[in-house]
C-alpha cells in the first residue's frame, strides 16, 4: 500500500514539474499568453508541488522529500552553470536574444514598454524555476544519478528547446539554422545544456546517495 502511495506522489510530482517549462513553449506557439499562464497555471503548480512535498513530509516519505528538495537545489545550481554559458554566448553574439528578459516582459505583459527591474526579476525567477523543475524530474527518475545520465538529459532538453516553437518565434528556425552562420546558436545551446546536465548529475550523485532510480524503487520497494 505504501509503495502505491509513494508512486502516486512521485507521478504527481513528475507531472507538476513538467508543466512549468512547457508554459513558455505554449505561449510561443500562440496558444495562450505567458502572463495568463503565469498567474493561472505556474503559481498554482508551484503551490501544488509545495503541498505534495508537505504531504510527503506528513506521511514520512523521506525518500520523496529528499529527491524532490535535492532536485530543486541541484536544478537551481545547475542553472547557474547553464547561465554562465548562455550569458557569455549572448554577449558574444551567439544567441539572438536575452531569453530570461524576454520571458519577464512576456510574463508581465509589457513587451511594448520593454524590460524593467520587475520583469527581469520575474524572468529570472521563471528561468531558475524551470531549472529546478527539470531538476525535480531528473532526481525523481534517476535517484543517485550517474554523470553520463545527466549529460544525456541536458542534451535532450537542449534538443527539445531547439525544435520547440520558441526558436520559430525568435525567427531563427529549428536548431537556429537561420541565425548567423547556422551553427552558433546550436553550439551555445548544446554546451549550456551539457553544463546544466553534468552539474545536475554531479550534484545529485552526492545529494541522493543510496537512493536508486525509479525503476529499481518500484521493483524493490524496501
Amino acid at each position: 500500500m505504501n509503495i502505491q502511495k509513494k508512486l502516486l506522489l512521485t507521478f504527481i510530482l513528475l507531472l507538476l514539474a513538467a508543466v512549468s517549462p512547457n508554459l513558455f513553449v505554449i505561449s510561443q506557439a500562440g496558444i495562450a499568453q505567458l502572463s495568463f499562464l503565469a498567474v493561472n497555471v505556474l503559481i498554482p503548480v508551484i503551490i501544488l508541488i509545495s503541498i505534495v512535498i508537505g504531504i510527503s513530509i506528513f506521511l514520512k516519505y523521506k525518500e520523496i522529500v529528499r529527491l524532490t528538495v535535492n532536485g530543486i537545489i541541484a536544478g537551481i545550481i545547475a542553472t547557474v552553470a547553464l547561465e554562465i554559458i548562455r550569458e557569455a554566448g549572448f554577449r558574444l553574439g551567439t544567441m539572438p536574444g536575452d531569453l530570461p528578459r524576454l520571458m519577464g516582459v512576456l510574463m508581465l505583459n509589457r513587451f511594448a514598454s520593454g524590460p524593467n527591474i520587475w520583469s527581469d526579476l520575474a524572468g529570472w525567477a521563471y528561468h531558475f524555476w524551470n531549472g529546478a523543475a527539470f531538476g525535480i524530474i531528473f532526481s525523481l527518475l534517476a535517484g543517485q544519478s550517474k554523470v553520463w545520465q545527466g549529460i544525456l538529459y541536458g542534451l535532450l532538453i537542449g534538443i527539445g528547446f531547439m525544435i520547440s516553437p520558441v526558436v520559430k518565434s525568435l525567427g531563427i528556425g529549428i536548431f537556429g539554422f537561420e541565425f548567423k552562420n547556422g551553427y552558433e546558436f546550436a553550439t551555445t545551446v548544446v554546451i549550456a545544456h551539457l553544463a546544466y546536465g553534468s552539474t545536475l548529475s554531479f550534484l545529485l550523485m552526492r545529494f541522493n546517495k543510496g537512493i536508486p532510480n525509479l525503476w529499481l524503487r518500484i521493483k524493490n520497494p524496501n
Partner: peptide
C-alpha cells in the same frame, strides 16, 4: 494612446 520603447525591446537582443 500607446508607446513602444523600441530601444528597451531591442536591448533584449543586445
Amino acid at each position: 494612446l500607446a508607446e513602444i520603447d523600441q530601444d528597451k525591446i531591442l536591448s533584449m537582443t543586445g
